[in-house]
Design a protein around this nucleic acid. Structure first.
Lengths: 221, 221
DNA sequence: GCTGGACGGTGACAAACTCACCGACGGGCC
DNA sequence: GGCCCGTCGGTGAGTTTGTCACCGTCCAGC
């Protein structure tokens, strides 16, 4: 059989020698899961490194009090490296990853991962670069939560979640989870945005009327 | 010359074969810096993996607005792995590490680090375990900042910083930085603690009078 | 002794979170 | 169709936390 082309979708893997690509595809398998699947979480740690081929995985953390905050998203072409680290260390890992859409991923078994890290410099760089990406994401979250203003963060998130589209389908509670705040806070901010004619709300849906105004608010230093 | 024993201080390195230890010591050098030295920061990224032999390094992040929050501390026997990741990825790295005491560290050059990661499974495990440790630290910070109450966080920090001692020398501003909050908030909480006879304040110093009460508050879910 | 900077205290106000409750909507069911 | 129930969103009141402005005290260095 010919080598599947998924490897080339990963910037950082596409330059691997053909022989290594061969090994990668032989030792991994492609899995898929429907939207809503818990990819990993407390008591459900996969024994593989996952490389996302399509879809997105939302990684969030839930506090003792039951409140939740979104840490980052894994997009197609990226990997779930943080899982592997915490897997190796047997650390209590309170974060969970949930498929936000239908997803497909290449699963690389631990042994193959270990082998690649040790023998292929380019793969090693790929892994460390993925770590760096995630860690800077976490730094960003800390900065936002500790010092950011809610209205700016909400405006920013609305734009990000819209993905360029004109409207987005989310509940106030989901937005609250995105920001790690309370639903009431989101409701009040959205009411204010609507009063300014920046958005229009309906049940479970938000239409962006003035994307520029939102972006301006989000960019306020 | 005989092999220096610093390697054995690192749980995770002490089991390396003698030959590898030899290589490590030969290719690294021991450096030292006085308290207050900036170990790494924006525009000052070391080209080495640092293994702390003595002292502690405080890693903190400063926001655009000039406010600061302590992310974690690197203690003797631990390593500055996050630096290496961000180093490899050339990511904008907004955190900085400052020597809190006089410190000594073994500096492993990038090339030697790379070589060890590739050829020594035990060293690889050491590195990934160090990552996992830091990442869970960051998760903890996010949880605290997003959902924690400051009286609990402050009580907790007082105990941690006292290191078992009876008093600690720290300003209100420094405590505010520890928690990523404002000085006034810390001042008011400390005033309240003092009113309850849990602490006694004097300029630049706090005496812990009732450690148990503080611990009880910190443990409140 | 004088002085300037660091340190800490305080009041007034704003932002964000909590709590309690309520009505509106919508899908399933009879 | 009408009913029911769970989700969704709105709102007021009160608390906690953060912001701003300002002030007095302490201390090191001159």
């Amino acid at each position: 059989m010919t080598q599947p082309d998924w490897i080339d979708r990963f910037q950082g893997l596409s330059t691997l020698p053909a022989q290594i690509k061969q090994e990668l595809t032989q030792r991994s398998r492609v899995i898929s899961a429907p939207a809503g699947t818990t990819i990993f979480g407390p008591g459900n740690i996969p024994d593989n490194l996952l490389l996302l081929l399509s879809g997105t995985v939302r990684v969030s953390q839930t506090s003792e009090g039951g409140r939740e905050i979104v840490l980052y998203r894994v997009e197609a072409g990226e990997s779930c490296v943080l899982t592997t680290a915490c897997l190796l260390a047997h650390e209590a890992y309170s974060a969970e990853g949930i498929a936000e859409t239908n997803v497909t991923a290449a699963a690389i078994p631990r042994a193959a991962f270990d082998n690649l890290v040790s023998s292929v410099p380019a793969f090693r760089d790929f892994v460390f670069a993925a770590y760096a990406r995630r860690i800077t994401d976490l730094f960003r979250v800390i900065d936002d939560v500790a010092f950011g203003r809610i209205d700016m963060r909400l405006a920013d998130r609305l734009i990000a979640l819209s993905g360029g589209g004109h409207d987005l389908h989310v509940t106030h509670q989901q937005l609250a989870t995105e920001l790690g705040t309370a639903r009431e806070v989101v409701s009040r901010q959205l009411t204010e945005f609507q009063r300014r004619d920046w958005i229009r709300q309906s049940r479970g849906q938000i239409d962006l009327l003035d994307r520029a105004a939102l972006a301006r608010l989000a960019a306020t230093a």
